[in-house]
Nucleic acid binder design. Structure first.
Lengths: 132, 132
DNA sequence: CAGGATCCCCCAAGATACTG
DNA sequence: CAGTATCTTGGGGGATCCTG
């Protein structure tokens, strides 16, 4: 009911585009408790390079989801925090994350099953004589 | 609360990976009302090529979210439908979609503002050029 | 109609190194 | 520590053609 036609409606895809970037949701989530410095974010997140973090932050900033603040006194003290808009995204993100915790193993099981029993049934194309 | 550490936890990212593909969520959503044939999906969705649709369907199938059924009598009658697991994803998807409807214009406004005030090229791809 | 096969493009993302 | 500049790559996704 709420979201009906986001097939044709571009607006709905907008949110998916936001979450489509690998780190966007992760960074937003890492900021949910308050302002954080890049180095803190990198620690909390793990596995993200400085460059990619910066890109992600710029992207989120560009979309009005986070906020950049430089401390006037301390030179290298930069902090990012969620904007009001950004905070509203936490709920949907949590919904997705919660789903993962509930059904993650089912997905992995399905993947497992699909990988194992794939040999013949589905769209297999085994070339015999006509070697392409 | 529910989803705490999906920063380190790969399980939570799993769901985001599922939604990270451009068409995954869209196709799932297009299937929410029941079984659909590929051609119907293409009509409903719009802007997706046959090849990409097939890829998406395979991917969703691989993850146990949808189900493929060939009609025995009619040769070219293939239908896809959500599995039980797939149906559980509709809620999170709807949460995201609903957010887009609520805050989509805020995001676009932010983008606008960021673009205007920053003479440089926007760090993000334009999500959508069409008018909302 | 379903969907495989190909060719091509683009860009997110990784690795690395450098500057303020 | 924050951030930038390069170079490279993987693969999603678009377009086209072809087949069962």
């Amino acid at each position: 009911m709420t979201t009906d036609a986001f097939l044709a409606d571009c607006r709905a895809r907008l949110a998916f585009d936001l979450l489509s970037n690998t780190w966007n949701a992760v960074v937003l989530w890492a900021l949910r408790d308050g302002p954080r410095r890049p180095v803190e974010l990198r620690e909390r997140i793990g596995g993200i390079s400085s460059k990619v973090l910066t890109e992600t932050l710029r992207r989120l900033q560009f979309n009005g989801l986070i906020d950049r603040q430089a401390h006037p006194d301390a030179p290298s003290r930069i902090e990012y925090q969620l904007t009001a808009l950004g905070r509203t995204l936490l709920a949907p993100i949590d919904a997705v994350g919660a789903w993962a915790f509930e059904h993650g193993d089912e997905v992995m099981a399905a993947q497992e099953a699909a990988s194992t029993s794939a040999p013949q049934a589905p769209p297999t194309r085994e070339i015999n004589g006509s070697t392409a």
